[in-house]
Every structure is written in structure tokens, then in C-alpha cells.
Amino acid sequence: MRIAVLMKDVPDLVEELEVEDGALPLDDMSFVPSEWDDQALEEALLIKEETGADVTVVAIDTGEVDGLMFTALAKGADRAVKLAGGFSRRLANRQRGAVLAQYCQTQGFDLVMTGVQAIDDLDGQIAGWVAGNLEVGHASVVRDVRAGADTVKVVQEYSGGKMAELELPLPAVLGIQAARKPPRYVTVAKVRQLQKTASVETVDVSEPTAPTLSVRKIYKPEAAGHAQMWGDDVDEVSEKIVNLLEDKKLLRS
């Protein structure tokens, strides 16, 4: 079985986000692998351990993705493929989806896995875009991936703790919510060693033509800083809490 794990890096939210002229200065920011993609990679590696599947990590070259790819190789991925086409950090998901689908089409992967979401997917999640472009079955918000010969079983999560087990024929695309185990640690030395001994394959691809969204501006919503205080009257505070719950749709109807 051949598994592709689609990964990308996203701005590190730990850093203060500075907005300049209604946009993010992406080129000056530090990037980290999207946490859900890490989950997808871990789940794929677990499947590899169980079934001997071959795991290929695929990322679009929008800057420095080599670190992410060598880390994946050090964790146990078999191949790392970088799709190059002079893309910028601003490459939208619709475009990413098209590029990735195009590549996956040529490779005949049995299973394509990626994170259920990323913090920057303003125009939809990668799993959906890729699956839609490939016109293959897919499921998102899933975990517990058990791969068989021709099908894959997954558990999909719904709100309120409800879940369902789904069975999809292969090939399929999955948006992973969480791996069965926390993503494994890989030592700095091992990544460094892989950088010396392994290589990332580069595949040239062409930029797709789909239109992009027009974003007028990006801004910071008002920050809280300190709690808004409700005083100490028990009745009043209870009332306020109930209202808040209602507002936020957190009450069971």
C-alpha cells in the first residue's frame, strides 16, 4: 500500500502576529509544520508499522519546507517529495489542492492523508480540495485509520461525542483529526543525519489557473487582556453565565 501524506507549514502562532497594511508579512514570520499534518503523518507511520505501507510525504515548495520534510524522513517516512513551481507563501488552498491532486493523480497512491485543517485555510481545507479534484471518496475529521487490502476503515467524529465508523474503498483521501498516539519525537541529531544521507525529491509542477479569493484586509479582533468582570452577586452572575451559554450555543437544547 502506498500512502501520501500532504504536509504544509504555517506561521508559528507563538509569535506575536503583526498585521501590516491589512496583510500579514508572511516572509518575515517563522513557520512550523501544521499540527494536524503532524497528526496525519503519525497515523500514516503507525499504519506503516502495522502493514509495511510505503509512506511518501508531499509538500508544496513555498519557501523552506526542507526542514519539515527531513523531520518526516527522520520519523520514518520512506520518501519526501517537494512540488516546485516558484510558489509564494501566499499560495491559496484552492491552488494547493489543484497542484497536489495533479501530482497524486500521476502517482496512484492508495491513501492520501492530511491534517483535517490548518490555521490558515481561509479558502477551505486541503483534504476536501484534493478529494474533490481527484473525484475520489474522502472523509474528514477522522481518526483510527485501519487500512485493509481494498478498503480503509476510519472513525469520524461529530459534536457531542458521537462517532461513526466508516468504510471507504481505496483510493481515498482522509482529513485526520488526531493520530492514535501523540506524534513521535525525533531527535535533532537524527534529522541532521538524514539531511546528510537522504534527499528530498523535487518535482516540477505548473501553477494552476483557478481564481483566488480577494481578501480586502486582515486585522486583529479586539483583544480581551483582562476578564470582563461581573461582580459578586450570585444570582446576577448565574444569570450572566446562562445568557453567555445561550449566546454561544453551548446549552443543550
Partner: peptide, 11 residues
């Protein structure tokens, strides 16, 4: 990533 154990921005 950040150089500290608190997961805080280096700055």
C-alpha cells in the same frame, strides 16, 4: 523552535 521551555516567542 522558540529556544525556551515555555513555548513563548523568543522576543
Amino acid at each position: 523552535r522558540q529556544g525556551n521551555s515555555f513555548g513563548q516567542a523568543a522576543r
